[in-house]
Design a protein around this nucleic acid. Structure first.
Lengths: 173, 173
DNA sequence: GTCTATATTGTGATAGAC
DNA sequence: GTCTATCACAATATAGAC
């Protein structure tokens, strides 16, 4: 899904990848939509865990944002893989509703976390006060998701970390 | 292609859309890859024309950037359509080479134009001097492409114009 | 849990008439 | 330039044996 998208992968691809035959997949997932929904759900769950790890590791907002960008970089550095929900977000209009609903939850969780980080940074004096925290969060998320798409389109090794660094430098107080 | 992506649309969809039968399409495009390549090429060509129009209409960098963001907004406002090359960029790893090559040209042209606008703004004193113009251009492009993906994923009416406005306000001197 | 076999539909593409 | 008819194949999904 990260490499070819929901419409670009088939049960045959999955079967080849995990080493079982195509019909055996149906023992684990009833439909393709259900498989994609679970993948997106797990991805969001692991992403939330990574956000908690950043909070434990970094105290100040700029460092937390750098850690956040590093999450995207780790994904992209692995053969230019896209964020699962970035890829699915682009395909949202041709996705089963239960899958796009999961994608929506991912973005909402990211915006909520980023908004809190931005607000903390503003209160601590490390981040600029304008625009408001929610707007800064939106810009950061869009820039990183976009960096994966553009980096892939350019077939460029330059990934989200580079764009994240640029964004942070414009966000500092 | 803007709504469902390269892997998400078929010749049947196109036939229904333009009102001819599926095989008739082959009189105009020899393969699906060729059709996508031409669509991306035309899109890039029209986008270049729109950039020239912005130059003629706005003189200062901030206004030109607002006009640039408005281009993305116009696309997105029409039923949350994605930038053709943003959609194809996400799918790049499952695209025929001649199509992804066209996508690459689109992003290169955008970065070149944006970099010039940023450099002009820096020289005129309207835009911040750090980071360098090329980095500001990269951030702006990624933020706008990402805004379409995230906006779609969130099923939100909030589009690239809103994110563009946020970006510009962080870029002002 | 995994398999073989198969149903059913969709898809890119071609042949050849008009 | 468009059509009907058709091909070859790939897709999601099911039936039923082991």
């Amino acid at each position: 899904m990260q490499q070819r998208g929901y419409n670009g992968f088939s049960f045959d691809d999955v079967a080849l990848l995990v080493g079982i035959k195509k019909p055996s997949i149906y023992h684990h997932f009833s439909t393709k939509a259900e498989l994609a929904r679970v993948v997106a759900q797990r991805y969001t769950h692991r992403f939330r865990a990574a956000l908690l790890a950043i909070e434990g590791h970094s105290a100040r907002a700029p460092e937390r944002l750098a850690g956040y960008a590093a999450l995207f970089e780790q994904t992209f550095a692995n053969d230019q893989r896209l964020c699962v929900c970035g890829m699915l977000g682009a395909e949202a209009q041709s996705l089963p509703p239960e899958v796009s609903a999961e994608v929506k939850r991912f973005f909402e969780a990211n915006l909520a976390w980023l908004t809190q980080v931005m607000a903390d940074g503003q209160a601590a004096g490390s981040l600029r006060l304008q625009p408001e925290a929610g707007a800064l969060a939106e810009a950061m998320l869009c820039a990183l998701e976009g960096a994966m798409v553009v980096g892939r389109g350019l077939a460029s090794p330059r990934g989200p970390q580079a764009v994240g660094t640029i964004m942070i430098s414009t966000l500092l107080a």
